[in-house]
Structures are given as structure tokens and as C-alpha cells.
Write a protein that binds this DNA or RNA. Structure first.
Length: 428
RNA sequence: GCCGAGAUAGUCUAGCGGUAGGGCGCAAGCCUGGAAAGCUUGUGGGGCGUCCGCCCCUCGGGAGUUCGAAUCUCCCUCUCGGCGCCA
């Protein structure tokens, strides 16, 4: 949610910056008109309410004295009719404003490169040596089925397309990665581990910006008003909804493992093979609540924390800064971390780290106080994947594959795999 | 799922048809050599305004009754206790 005061004061500036996302936002000018109309009506109806309050007090006094109140009650009755009409008009305008405000994306930070798609993204840095194979590297789905650690057919049988069964060392590898990431972030990077609900209510989805605009991307748990989480960002950010944080407890760092559920509406035909794009996948998420003046510094640190996972796994990656046209709805600035996948011969997104500034905080009403008596201000919220677990498995299978079809286990994961060094075909 | 009790400002609590009172916390002022204590004032959201102020809203959410609702009626949500079911 954008600040209506900013829109009121500088509509042209807001329009200009929003339009770098590649859509038309002249509706902002409508909002400004409605907002002015709303305030005029408010002044009018509040004067009438003042009359009603004063009159009601007098009626009380007059009745106590046993005097006649017929005339004044008639006046209040008329005022009441006008009040209910004006109130209805105000509510109508407010709804109109809110309906538009709810689907307005965040304003990109001033420094973000203007562009229309991922081809305009700016590469910030690269890390690691891309491995040269002396054999033809196989895609992770061939490696996974060859070792019988990924079972796509049974996943489809049990549930449907884009669901996969992990078996034996594959299941253990997934679990090992989760534990490794959580341990790294909690012991080295200062995050508090949380294990939130995997379903949230509509209010929480609104708070982080998934609703009302992106309902078709979510799994709804009928007949409840609950949704399966598409990312731990939703439950963890909403942990502090409607709260006022104390300055001395900030910045707040949380990490959380959750499965993520995405309908992937509109993704038909893309990444249909393998585990790159699933309806259900695991992710370890990093979430921060910061003051406005430190949020961009915290974004750098958060991104570095996610990169550290890839460094320790010795997986080559690059970091790109998303252009205005490629950024998510709620974000003001986003870094994507892309891991090298040999079979695709390209870098693929494995983490997305964003600063939402006060966009989510305003929707979810998350504030902090600088001083005991000070006015509450909105916090800045940030999050990033640290990392997507399924895609990490895919990256390990492809980058660590051997000519005989086996896969070497990255050193840092071996303690989590009972010392296993090589994943060979499942014996049972 | 059933029965009961609750939800009041940062926090605790009173009020149960006349427009939110008190305690604590916090802040400012007075007092003081300085503090504590004490006393006074303030404490959420919004609107209007020549910055002095004025007004509206807010008692879990919504609808209704009334000149007037924290208070009465109905619906819903959540919390706590008991019973039932259950990994």
C-alpha cells in the first residue's frame, strides 16, 4: 500500500515512477480527486455529527428538567438522515480508493534501472568457477530418476503434475540442505529460527501483498478462509502485524523453513521437466524488520547471507539487480541470486532478496517507536530466500554429477548425510 | 463439536442507556542544591485550520433498536476454563 499523503502531495511524481514498471497508472489522478471529495464530505458530515452530539446532550438535560424535546428531536432526526446519506457516500468513496490502492504496486527505488524484462536486469557480481565437464552433463531429472532418488511419475500419480516424490538419499539430501541452511543462518548470521503455520488467513495474504491481486496463484483451503503459504514471507512477516516494535529490539531477523505452495497459474509449458517449477517446494526464508534508514544496508547483508549458502556449497552463481519491469508487486528493490545449472548452460534463479520499504508494513500495520513518547512509524520489511531447497538439490545434482551417473555430496552437507560422500543408486 | 466466562487506549482495570473513569508505565511542567516522593498536564486514528486550537471516530468485528449505545438485541471472530474427540 502506498501512502495516500504522498499521492496527494505529488501525484505526477508517483505516476512517473510507477510507470517505469511498464503499465499505465493515470488512475492515480482519479484517486487524488476522490481523496479531495472524501475530505470535503468528511468536514460536512463531521459538523452534522457534532450537532447531533451536542443536541443529544441537551435532550438529556431538558428531559431531566421535564421539558419538551419534540422540536429538537425532530432536528436531530433530520440531521441523522443526512448523516447516514453522507456516511454512505464517504464509505463508497473510501472503498473506491481502497480498491485501486490495493492493486497499485510499490514505487521502485529511484536508483533502479528502468527496463521491461529480465533481459534488462543488471548483473552485479559473479562467484565461483563454472565446471568444465569431460562428459555430457545430464539434466537433474535424468540424474534423479537414474539414481531412483526423484520419482516424478509417482508424484503425478499421487497428486498431479508438478508434484514429486523424493526417495532415499534424495529425501535425505533435501532434509540435509534444510538443516544446513537453518544452522548457518541461526549460528553465523544471527537469525532467530521460527516454524510458522503453513496455512494463513486472507488478512495475512493481504498484509504481504498476495491478495487481492494474485489470488489465482494461491491454493485455497476450502471451506476455510485459509490459504497454503506460497512462501514463509507471508506468515513470518505477519507475525508482527498490528504490533509496535521497540527500537531496541530492531532490526529483527527471522529465518524459517516451510514448504511453499504455488498454483503456478500461467506457467503452463515452462520448466515442465524436473524440480525447477513445482506446485510444492521447500524453502528456507530470511525475513527482516528494520528502521527506514538502515533497510538498504540490511538488504545487502541479507543478500550476502543467502550467497554464503552457495559459497559453502561451492556452487557458482551470479547476483542480478532486477530492473523496474521485472520486479515483484510489493518490492522497491530486488536482487536475484542465480545458480549455474550445467544442463541448461545458464544461471537460474535460486533466491530473490527484496526490500519492501514500508509497503507491506502499511498493509499489515507493522510499526516501531523511536522514543517512548514518539509517534509510531512504519518499519521497513525485507525478505529473501536462503535458499530455495528444491532448486539447490537440482544445482547439486547437476554440478556434482559424475560420469558414472553418481553424485558427489558437497563437503559441508556430509555431516548432515551421515557421512555419505557419494550418492549411488538406491539399494532398496 | 458442546457448555461457560471474557475481549475497554502501551499495559492492567472500572463503568452495564446520558457520550470512556482510575492504577501502572512513559513524557512534559511545578517543586528541589540535585534526585526520589508529591502535585499538575498529556498519552490511539483521522479531518479542518493564520501552529493557538476546534471537531469527528475509536470500548474484538459487523448489523440493528434509540434523540443518544462500551452498556440493550442479533450475527461473526478470537482468547481462557470445563467436557468430548484426537496424533
Amino acid at each position: 500500500m502506498l501512502d495516500i499523503k504522498l499521492i496527494r502531495e505529488n501525484p505526477d511524481e508517483i505516476i512517473r515512477r510507477l510507470q517505469t514498471r511498464g503499465a499505465d497508472f493515470s488512475v492515480i489522478l482519479e484517486i487524488v480527486k476522490w481523496d479531495e471529495e472524501r475530505r470535503l464530505l468528511l468536514t460536512e458530515v463531521e459538523a452534522k455529527k457534532n450537532f447531533r452530539n451536542e443536541s443529544s446532550k441537551r435532550i438529556g438535560l431538558l428531559k431531566r428538567e421535564g421539558k419538551d424535546t419534540t422540536d429538537i428531536m425532530k432536528e436531530v432526526g433530520e440531521a441523522n438522515d443526512q448523516i447516514s446519506q453522507l456516511d454512505a457516500k464517504v464509505a463508497e468513496i473510501e472503498e473506491k480508493i481502497l480498491n485501486v490502492m490495493n492493486v497499485l504496486p510499490n514505487v521502485p527505488r529511484e536508483t533502479i534501472k528502468v527496463g521491461t524484462s529480465d533481459t534488462d536486469n543488471k548483473e552485479v557480481r559473479r562467484w565461483g568457477e563454472v565446471r568444465m565437464f569431460d562428459f555430457e552433463p545430464k539434466p537433474h531429472w535424468d540424474i534423479g530418476t537414474g539414481l531412483d532418488i526423484l520419482d516424478f511419475e509417482r508424484g503425478a500419480k499421487i497428486t498431479g503434475a508438478r508434484f514429486t516424490v523424493y526417495k532415499g538419499a534424495g529425501a535425505r539430501l533435501e532434509r540435509a540442505i534444510i538443516n544446513f541452511m537453518l544452522d548457518l543462518h541461526t549460528t553465523k548470521h544471527g537469525y532467530m529460527e521460527t516454524l510458522p503455520p503453513f496455512m494463513v488467513n486472507a488478512q495475512s495474504m493481504y498484509g504481504t501483498g498476495q491478495l487481492p491481486k494474485f489470488e489465482e496463484d494461491l491454493f485455497k483451503v476450502t471451506p476455510f478462509d485459509y490459504y497454503l503459504v506460497p512462501t514463509a514471507e507471508v506468515p513470518v512477516t505477519n507475525m508482527h502485524a498490528n504490533e509496535i516494535l521497540a527500537l531496541d529490539q530492531m532490526p529483527v531477523y527471522y529465518t524459517a523453513y516451510t514448504p511453499c505452495f504455488r498454483a503456478e497459474a500461467g506457467a503452463a509449458g515452462r520448466d515442465t521437466r524436473g524440480i525447477i517449477r513445482q506446485h510444492q517446494f521447500n524453502k528456507v526464508e530470511l525475513v527482516k524488520f528494520t528502521t527506514p534508514e538502515t533497510s538498504y544496508e540490511e538488504l545487502e547483508k541479507l543478500t550476502n547471507n543467502a550467497e554464503e549458502v552457495l559459497k559453502q556449497l561451492k556452487l557458482p552463481y551470479r547476483v542480478v539487480e532486477l530492473c523496474t519491469g521485472d520486479m515483484g508487486f510489493s518490492s522497491a528493490m530486488t536482487y536475484d541470486i542465480e545458480v549455474w545449472l550445467p544442463a541448461f548452460a545458464t544461471y537460474r534463479e535460486i533466491s530473490s532478496c527484496s526490500n519492501f520499504e514500508d509497503f507491506q508494513a502499511r498493509r499489515a500495520n507493522i510499526r516501531f517507536r523511536r522514543e517512548q513518547k514518539g509517534k509510531p512509524e512504519y518499519v521497513h520489511t525485507l525478505n529473501g530466500s536462503g535458499l530455495a531447497v528444491g532448486r539447490t538439490v537440482a544445482a547439486i545434482l547437476e554440478n556434482y554429477q559424475n560420469a558414472d551417473g553418481t553424485v558427489t555430496v558437497p563437503e559441508v552437507l556430509r555431516p548432515y548425510m551421515g557421512g555419505l560422500e557419494i550418492i549411488a543408486i538406491n539399494k532398496k
